[in-house]
Amino acid sequence: MESVFNWIAINQQIIYIVILMVFVGIEVIGRVPSVLHTPLMSGANAIHGVVIIGAIIVMGKAESDNYVALTLGFLAVVLGTLNVVGGFVVTDRMLEMFKNKKAQK
């Protein structure tokens, strides 16, 4: 039991971040009109592309003779970039149409 308390004490900052972020995420989504659900889902999809940061770190740390790590890391960077770039571009394309219509009004 004590070790659990210790763990919480040591990691309290991260725990705070997680809990606050959960609330922020819910708050942000809660006010979205249904018209924007698809672009929002797509935007959120692009944002979880932050996983690319992890891929870059893992790639940049890989020993240059560890070919398994290099290959997998390279693949991770490619896929992560696809997620980020593709996600933002698709979202922008969706929203572009909303904007056109707004301008016409």
Binding site: I29, M41, H48, I53
Partner: peptide, 29 residues
């Protein structure tokens, strides 16, 4: 959530916040 796991792993706050944000918002949606 998977991205947030990377955040824990590297103690990387941007991955953590981004991942959790999407995880929470996506779950609610």
């Amino acid at each position: 959530v998977a991205a947030a796991c990377g955040g824990f792993l590297y103690n990387n706050n941007v991955m953590l916040t981004g991942g959790i944000l999407v995880g929470a918002a996506g779950t609610l949606l």
